Amino acid sequence: MKRLIALAAVLSTLIFLFACSQQPTNKAEAPKEDINVRLELQKMSTLEKIVQRGTLRVGLEAGYMPFEMTDKKGNVVGFDIDMVTEMAKAMGVKLEIVNTAWDGIIPGLLSDKYDLIASGMTVNQERNLKVNFAIPYIVVGQTALISKEYADEITSWKQLNDAKYVITSKLGTTGEQAAKRLFPKAQYKSFEMEDQAMLETLNGKAAATVYDLPMTSIFYAQRGKDAGMKLLKDPFTYEPLGWAINKGDPDFLNWLNNFLTQIKNDGRYDRIYDKWFGSDAWYAEIQ
């Protein structure tokens, strides 16, 4: 009798489980649909997502003149801003700027807070382990700002490796490293601030200042040009800046590279470059 009761209990349980398995429920189907949607989104290129969303989200830190900075009206402006504005126009979408702290800028990209980073970011191997870079859109290596006294004499940065020249730069910078490494015969003077180093050259107390292209270009436009100084604007160290995107997205990378090639050959790039590096008219509007 006990065996019959136990057998009946087992049969009842099997019948119940079979009946449950045959009844479709929306709860079981919904997650599968959600998963499929998520998988499809993951397969989509960032470029497709931007177009569907209608917005290009760009991450940056507004604090690197003249690439990205805040004007007196509170707007983020600069070379990078004009470049990504043209990028959004080419995509036919709106532009959204996401201002973020530098130490969190790559994590923000990886967590999908924005679609790319355009923030004066130097391309290097350490960062390239985490993100992909489009081809460099500008090289901002070291340049030489020449004093009026030597403007006619010095026509190439290679001439600076001479004991008769005094060269200045800022303490603890790649400018100082380049000056010591490339011009060991020259007399070197270090300053706490880059403007002090350039003023030394402006006042004729040094033959040249070695420093980053953006800052030497700005100083030259503001004060050096009228004073008869010369700017050797072609960098002699290689410090390329590039747009960073998430890995595994060849379609987006291809589009960015082609976009840069196009604007560098149709006049748009030169117009933007001259606005921010060839003139200081924008400086009066900066905070």
Score class of each variant (00 low, 15 high):
Gly175Cys: 11
Gly175Phe: 05
Glu176Arg: 07
Glu176Gly: 07
Gln177Phe: 10
Ala178Pro: 03
Ala178Ser: 13
Ala178Gln: 06
Arg181Thr: 14
Arg181Val: 00
Arg181Trp: 01
Arg181Leu: 09
Leu182His: 10
Leu182Pro: 03
Leu182Phe: 14
Leu182Asn: 12
Phe183Val: 01
Pro184Gln: 05
Pro184Thr: 02
Lys185Asp: 10
Ala186Lys: 01
Tyr188Cys: 04
Glu192Phe: 08
Met193Arg: 14
Met193Thr: 14
Glu194Thr: 11
Asp195Ala: 08
Gln196Phe: 13
Ala197Asp: 11
Ala197His: 10
Ala197Phe: 11
Glu200Trp: 09
Ala206Gln: 09
Ala206Gly: 08
Ala207Asp: 13
Ala207Cys: 07
Ala208Phe: 02
Tyr211Asn: 14
Tyr211Lys: 09
Leu213Asn: 05
Met215Gln: 12
Thr216Gly: 15
Ser217Cys: 11
Ser217Asp: 09
Ile218Tyr: 08
Phe219Gln: 12
Phe219Tyr: 15
Tyr220Thr: 05
Ala221Ile: 00
Arg223Val: 11
Gly224Trp: 06
Gly224Leu: 03
Lys225Gln: 15
Asp226His: 06
Ala227Trp: 02
Gly228Pro: 10
Gly228Ser: 05
Met229Lys: 09
Met229Glu: 13
Lys230Val: 07
Lys230Pro: 05
Lys230Phe: 02
Leu231His: 15
Leu232Lys: 03
Lys233Tyr: 10
Asp234Cys: 00
Pro235Tyr: 07
Phe236Gly: 08
Phe236Asn: 07
Leu241Asp: 03
Leu241Val: 00
Gly242Lys: 02
Trp243Phe: 15
Ala244Gln: 02
Asn246Cys: 10
Lys247His: 01
Gly248Gln: 02
Pro250Ala: 01
Leu253Phe: 04
Trp255His: 09
Leu256Lys: 06
Leu256Ile: 08
Leu260Thr: 01
Leu260Trp: 06
Thr261Gly: 03
Thr261Lys: 14
Lys264Glu: 09
Lys264Pro: 03
Asn265Phe: 04
Tyr269Asn: 06
Tyr269Ile: 05
Tyr269His: 03
Asp270Val: 09
Arg271Ile: 04
Ile272Val: 10
Tyr273Ile: 05
Asp274Ala: 15
Asp274Cys: 07
Lys275Phe: 05
Ser279Lys: 11
Ala281Gln: 12
Trp282Ser: 07
Tyr283His: 04
Tyr283Arg: 08
Tyr283Trp: 08
Glu285Leu: 04
Ile286Val: 15
Ile286Arg: 06
